[in-house]
Design a protein around this nucleic acid. Structure first.
Length: 314
DNA sequence: AAACAGGCCTAAA
DNA sequence: TTTAGGCCTGTT
């Protein structure tokens, strides 16, 4: 798969992965798919995932993960970071969608196709494989909300209801030191037991009830996330939409970012605008096929990038 | 100050 | 099947 050229080496406390293609932390952690990572002044990204702190920096030809063994990378971070997915093949397939046949029958690239431009601008974008429950709660909170507040809400949620990161086991001498103040994402049972006012107090607003209802449904088995992962994407979306506060957009985000469903196509306001502009008449992402969700990420990132540049001029 | 933010719910055509 | 308000709250 995409790791065919991957070379793993341990450098002191850290692990380097070299020979990577299409992996840019700045685009991966800042494209709105995750909410627990921050960019440090030195350019490294640091956040909590899978109950551990992950610190990652781009180096020429790859990345360096701090306080991490090669074993830890192979068993945990490779899949989480999307490095088990073959983006060369995915991009080739998406690029094939925007080629058409010239009169001579030969392939002729559509240089001005929006997806082609977006894929060029967003070379290093990847979709993380985040845990389903965390993704569900996070995108419930994301609705009618902005990134800054979403991140604050989720941090508050973890501080109030998440377990402190576990102390190091003797078998993991190279795991990151536990920093007081680092919390895992809360488990369903813990959130289900939270008082409604307790969640409100975190500043979630009306989403507090959604969060508690969703946690209850997962905790009591009304919503079986393992079963959802076995359904086809349309059925899975229907199942998720049974939860109050989960509509088509949130369901698609949960499927794309939390269940690895690359065909799920979140239609937020940006993507609606962009689709109307570039692909008038399309009501969904069907034209992008089984990697529609990844096409969506390229297009979304590109459109926001253009808006930011435009805004910066004024 | 009023509008807006990676929506969804409910009521009503 | 589609459309119009309202909704918590912090930011601009």
């Amino acid at each position: 798969m995409g790791k065919n050229m991957e070379k793993i080496e341990q450098i002191g406390q850290n692990t380097r992965i070299l020979g990577l293609e299409y992996f840019d932390p700045d685009r991966i952690f800042d494209c709105g798919q995750c909410f627990r990572f921050d960019r440090r002044p030195d350019g490294a990204w640091s956040g909590i995932a899978l109950g551990r702190r992950l610190q990652i920096r781009a180096i020429p030809g790859g990345i360096e993960i701090a306080d991490c063994t090669p074993e830890r990378y192979r068993t945990l971070w490779r899949d989480y970071l999307g490095l088990s997915d073959d983006y060369r093949a995915i991009r080739a397939e998406l690029a094939g969608l925007v080629e058409d046949r010239g009169p001579d029958g030969k392939d002729r690239a559509c240089e001005d196709d929006p997806l082609r431009r977006a894929m060029e601008a967003g070379q290093g974008i990847r979709i993380l494989r985040q845990p389903p429950f965390e993704t569900l709660i996070s995108f419930l909170i994301s609705q009618n909300n902005n990134i800054g507040r979403i991140k604050k809400n989720i941090a508050a949620l973890c501080r109030a209801y998440g377990d402190p990161l576990p102390p190091l086991g003797p078998s993991d001498p190279l795991d990151p030191p536990v920093v007081p103040g680092d919390y895992a994402f809360p488990i369903p049972e813990r959130l289900a037991a939270a008082g409604a006012d307790g969640l409100r107090g975190l500043g979630l607003g009306y989403r507090a009830d959604y969060v508690r209802d969703a946690a209850r449904a997962v905790a009591d088995g009304t919503l079986n996330l393992s079963a959802v992962s076995g359904m086809d994407t349309a059925d899975a979306a229907r199942a998720l939409c049974e939860i109050r506060g989960v509509g088509p957009k949130v369901a698609a985000c949960v499927l794309l970012f939390g269940f690895g469903r690359s065909d799920a196509f979140p239609m937020d306001v940006w993507v609606k605008r962009l689709m109307a502009k570039y692909y008038p008449g399309d009501r969904d992402g069907r034209r992008f096929g089984r990697y529609a969700g990844i096409a969506q990420q390229y297009l979304f990132y590109y459109e926001r990038y253009l808006a930011d540049r435009e805004g910066a001029l004024h």
